[in-house]
Simulated scan of single mutants.
Amino acid sequence: VGTQVADGGLPWRYDGSGGVALASPPKEVREFDGTAYVLERGIRTDFALVRAARGDRHGNLVFAKSSRNFNPLAAMAGRVTIAEVEELVEPGAIDPDAVHLPGVFVQRVVALTAEQAADKRIERRTVSS
Rank of each mutant, 00 (worst) to 15 (best):
V62H: 00
E28Q: 15
M76D: 12
P96T: 08
E87Y: 07
A48I: 09
V89H: 05
L101T: 00
F47K: 11
A117W: 06
L61C: 09
E86Q: 14
R44E: 12
A21I: 04
V110S: 02
A114N: 05
G2L: 04
A118H: 11
V20E: 04
S129H: 08
E40M: 12
A21V: 04
S128F: 14
P26A: 13
E115N: 09
P72N: 03
G19E: 01
V127D: 05
G19P: 02
D7E: 15
R68H: 12
S66P: 00
N71Y: 02
A83Q: 02
V99H: 00
G55L: 04
R125E: 11
A23S: 15
I43A: 10
R124V: 15
D95C: 06
D119K: 13
G78F: 01
V109D: 01
V29I: 15
P25W: 01
V50K: 03
T45Y: 04
F63D: 06
A48M: 10
L22K: 03
V80N: 06
L49A: 00
V5D: 03
D119M: 11
G42M: 06
P102G: 05
A53E: 14
L101V: 00
S129K: 08
L88Y: 10
A118Q: 14
D46E: 14
G42S: 11
E84I: 05
N69M: 08
A52G: 00
V89P: 08
G18L: 01
I122Y: 13
A98T: 07
R54V: 12
Q107P: 06
E87A: 11
T126C: 03
A48R: 08
M76P: 07
D33G: 09
P72T: 01
V62A: 01
E115R: 14
T45D: 01
P96I: 07
R13W: 03
R51K: 12
V106R: 10
L49Y: 01
G2R: 05
D119C: 10
A36T: 03
L39A: 08
A98N: 09
V80R: 15
G18A: 03
